[in-house]
Every structure is written in C-alpha cells, then in structure tokens.
Amino acid sequence: MKIVEISHVSRVYKVGDHEQKALDDVSLELESGKTIVILGPSGAGKSTLLNLLGGLDSPTSGTIKIKGQDISTLNADQLAEYRASGVGFIFQAYNLIPTLTVLENVALVKEIAKDPLSSHDMLREVGLGDHMYKFPVELSGGEQQRVSIARAVTKNPDILLCDEPTGALDTETGIMVLKLLQRMAKEHGKTTIIVTHNQNIAKMADVVVHVKNGKIKEVINNDKPLAVEEVEW
C-alpha cells in the first residue's frame, strides 16, 4: 500500500531578492511498512523533503499525499492534528523538554494523539524503565535519543521521521539507537524515513532515495536490507 505520494513538489525560499530552490519538481511514492533512507550531501534538499513530509512546512507547488490525504493544502490546525497522530519525529538534537521528566516527555503526547500507546510500556521497551523519573539532563545522549524514539512511537503514528538520528552520537551508541529504531518500527509496523548523509545507514534500508541539488537523482530498492549488526560501521 502506498503511504506517501509526492507529486511535482517544489519548495522555493526567498532570501532577500534572491529565490533559492530547495526542492525542484520532486515526485516520489513510498510503500507502507518500509524503511526508507534519504541520502544526500549537505544542502541537497533532504531535510526540506523531511519537513514537508512531517507537515512542518508546505510546498510552494505540487501535492503531498499521506495515506491518500493531501497534506499540502491543510491549514495550521489541521497540520498540527496531522503531526499529533500521523507522524513521529526523532531529531538529531533529541529535542526533549528539559523541565519534564523522561516519563512526562513521553506522556505529554498522549494529550494530543488520537490513539496513543502506553508511555510506561514504551519506555520499558526502549530500556528506560528505570529512568522514568529522571530529567533529560541526567541521561546520556543515547538514552535521550531512546526517549525521543519512545515519544515518537507512543503517538502510534503511521510514519516515523528521523533527521540524522545518530548524528550527535558516537558510533557504538548510534548502532544501538538504530537497532532500537529498526526493532520498534518492525514490532509496531511503522514506515520509517531516515534522513542522513551516512552511506552505511542506507544499507539497512528497503528503499534508498538519493537527493542532490533539490532533485531526486535515484531511487534504489534494496531487496536484501541488512540488519544493523550486519552493517560495517
């Protein structure tokens, strides 16, 4: 089943009098339940693509359908509802609320998501059952990213959007986080879209989308995606 249908999407930013095309007439279709990696160098437009998919930004032209719903025409409130239940974000900088405990950071999404999962269960699943009442600052980077994953999955969205999820972590911790991400996506049946410039991560993807200069250069279907531990890091 197609979960993402991007059709002739462009995103143009105005910088003073100058127009900068971050995405230029991009079209892409993605299947449900897959792990998709968007690869490309800095400034290629991969983060712009992720922002559009996550409803953080709207395209200048073209349409983006998520499960058949065109999100490019939604207003601010409708986009907020979409973000509340449709997608879960995992950021490179974790973006946890420092004044909320680990449990509260995860549980806060239950106030807005339509069909959330148990935040306690989710924290236990990511191995933080003993750290629920700690504040983010008391956790390591890897642990904070696990909280971020738990928060994203608790919303029970169809899609997990990950922006350089291991970018701020050392290799060992990064591998552990990716393992967790892969396991959670599989167990909960989520489509996972990862934006990265790390070629190795692409090896664990079902689909690899190469982006350069605001255009999709290549979409490669990977018949034999590797498990995280099989990838040479």
Binding site: N95, L96, V109, A113, K155
Partner: peptide, 10 residues
C-alpha cells in the same frame, strides 16, 4: 517549537 512539532496546536 518541539511542542509544535509533536503536534500541539498554537
């Protein structure tokens, strides 16, 4: 901004 990203309305 994080709240907004995770889906809180304005």
């Amino acid at each position: 901004a994080t709240l907004k990203v995770v889906g809180f309305k304005d």
